[in-house]
Design a protein around this nucleic acid. Sequence first.
DNA 1: ATATTATTGCAACTTAGTTGCATTTGGGCA
DNA 2: TGCCCAAATGCAACTAAGTTGCAATAATAT
Lengths: 143, 143
Amino acid sequence: MKSGIRQEAQRLLDSTGLRRTGPRLAVLGVLFEAGRPITHEQITAKLAEAAPNKVTIYRVLESLVEADIVHKAFLRDRAQHFELANRCTASQCHPHFTCTSCETTYCFADVALPMTKSPMGFTVLHQRVQLEGLCPNCSEKTG
Amino acid sequence: MKSGIRQEAQRLLDSTGLRRTGPRLAVLGVLFEAGRPITHEQITAKLAEAAPNKVTIYRVLESLVEADIVHKAFLRDRAQHFELANRCTASQCHPHFTCTSCETTYCFADVALPMTKSPMGFTVLHQRVQLEGLCPNCSEKTG
DNA sequence: ATATTATTGCAACTTAGTTGCATTTGGGCA
DNA sequence: TGCCCAAATGCAACTAAGTTGCAATAATAT
Ligand SMILES: [Mn+2]
Ligand SMILES: [Mn+2]
Ligand SMILES: [Zn+2]
Ligand SMILES: [Zn+2]
């Protein structure tokens, strides 16, 4: 992990009141480096031999979500995808695009989208937009 | 199951080339009656003692999805939610609203929403919009 | 009515995520 | 600096949605 990222992870963690622990810094570092939603499995793979216990990673993620610095972006293939919450508002995150060919997820962080207007009586607290299709790489390969 | 719904289920099934079987008609009937996305568990509960084998229901759903008359609306709580595809287009279904208090899902079938404009090079094939909040019932209860 | 092949049922399996509990550790405080 | 203890971690066992292999059954075409 680059030292700038470690600094950033520490700063973020310290802002929450959560204890500064190895597993938390490690997971935050991976999320910083990823810059997109990733799964528990991908986090474990990235940390490789230095990975904390499986359950610890789940609980670290849980605590970071609880502290509002990490965010459950979406569920795909029965696995939760986590990302830093620094580019999300309370009522909606940016849209996420997953390529059905290479399974890569992209954040459309600059795409503004209006909140769906809902019928009378409904209070919409959160909106999630998921896109699927072909990324630029896979688009050109398949013509 | 009302006879009108059974008729409708048969008509729909016959249009697909799939064999007309008890489990398929039963599952289609439940989906018709629900009129909103439901889980495997909810289908099983609705069919109660008449429910086919668990695996059969999964395979029935799979075949109906394959035939494009049923549709995986969204994943929630690690469970797939299925609904009839009669109010969906290929590129997007209507938005779905789930009340976080009573866990009921509503179809906003009349809400038109524009496809998200995506960056250069991306081919968007499908857009899914999920909403969370409080339904009219739960809104008034919580003030 | 028979043959063909899709469909069903059952048991065993997979996998993301959870729970209970004993052990360890971060960080406030004497 | 060292002690204390709530918070955090590790491990084993568990849960639950969904899948797979295979033998038995049933829908349709002829
Ligand atoms: Mn994102
Ligand atoms: Mn719907
Ligand atoms: Zn791709
Ligand atoms: Zn409600």
